[in-house]
Design a binder for these strands. Structure first.
Length: 306
DNA sequence: CGTTTTTGACCCGCGC
DNA sequence: GCGCGGGTCAAAAACG
């Protein structure tokens, strides 16, 4: 049980609690703490209830141990960890069935965690600049998922520019920081590799894209079929068509999906979609089922599916 | 030549 | 107050 070891190792870190991990970027250790299931006694549904605050964060993790079939399976997998309830409705990817099933069986170790870090910090404007009226910086809600992949930077339909890299404590693998290259869109993501299982990449998204996936207009991806003209459902097909041969990125939540998030379940299957879903399902603090934007963007038939 | 990556420095929050 | 770790900046290098 690598995870167990990880958990124990985490204990050696000592100074940080799980929440600390989370608020600081939920290092894997944090995730595994979570997996331990002791620091979070909330049941999944309970969490949902808690989460239902719209802006509070929600963590759902399936540690590698929960998907035993993965490591040995020819088809790599993705373990999803989400920090936002709105995203939980994420459907399994079309071709993740095998993985999904595997994970479902493994959910026994299902871990859930609630985070309320939204008031955490707002690092969008920053540090080297004169600090402003120091309200605690607010951090955008984040969500992450673990992906079994050989490449660190997973294609998700958006363009990212790397702006930093740091060594991760207790891990031989560095953590990379990316920002969406689209002007006015300050979505960020962190990518790091699990030191317990180097084949697993943990990607954390922070913020919400304020634009459609740019891949639509990208020549290199022009051949990818577009599901719509908005962009957020496009990424997955692109992903599948262009990168699956190198790695698999198949976020899935299957049985972990919270019922209440069904309203946002419209079939997107990747990170970009997650972000968009999040954005559209959770347009503002406390708002949950506002379909205003959704209706503008999502085909009516999709909405009906909820 | 424009864009992205690399990388050391810096800032900030937090625990001791 | 100090040190540590996480996160970001920004100049230089690399890349296409």
């Amino acid at each position: 049980m690598d995870i167990k070891e990880a958990l124990e190792m985490d204990g050696t870190m000592g100074s940080s609690s799980f929440l600390d991990h989370v608020s600081a970027g939920f290092p894997l250790q944090g995730i595994f703490d979570f997996a331990e299931g002791e620091k979070s006694s909330l049941g999944f549904m309970e969490l949902l209830g808690v989460q239902d605050f719209g802006s509070s964060l929600f963590d759902m993790v399936q540690t590698p141990s929960t998907v035993p079939a993965l490591s040995s399976s020819p088809n790599p997998t993705v373990v999803t960890k989400m920090e936002s309830p709105d995203l939980l409705n994420q459907p399994a990817t079309p071709n993740s069935s095998s993985i999904s099933s595997a994970s479902s069986e493994a959910v026994n170790d299902e871990q859930v965690k609630v985070e309320e870090q939204e008031e955490d910090q707002q690092k969008t404007k920053k540090q080297l600049k004169p600090k402003k009226t120091n309200q605690k910086r607010q951090r955008e809600p984040r969500f992450a998922f673990m992906t079994k992949s050989e490449v660190d930077h997973l294609e998700d339909g958006y363009r990212w520019r790397k702006y930093g890299q740091k060594a991760v404590k207790d891990s031989p693998f560095p953590r990379s920081y990316y920002r969406c290259t689209t002007a006015s869109c300050n979505v960020k993501k962190r990518v790091e590799r699990s030191y317990n299982d180097p084949s697993i990449v943990v990607t954390t998204y922070e913020g919400q894209h304020t634009h459609p996936s740019p891949v639509i207009s990208r020549p290199s991806l022009a051949g990818v079929p577009q599901l719509n003209n908005v962009g957020f459902n496009v990424a997955m097909p692109i992903h599948l068509g262009t990168t699956m041969s190198r790695y698999q990125q198949q976020p899935f939540v299957n049985n972990l999906l919270p019922p209440m998030s069904l309203a946002c379940n419209y079939g997107s299957t990747n990170a970009a979609a997650f972000l968009n879903e999040r954005r559209f399902c959770n347009p503002g603090p406390g708002l949950f089922k506002d379909h205003g934007l959704l209706q503008d963007i999502i085909p009516s038939h999709m909405l009906k599916e909820e």
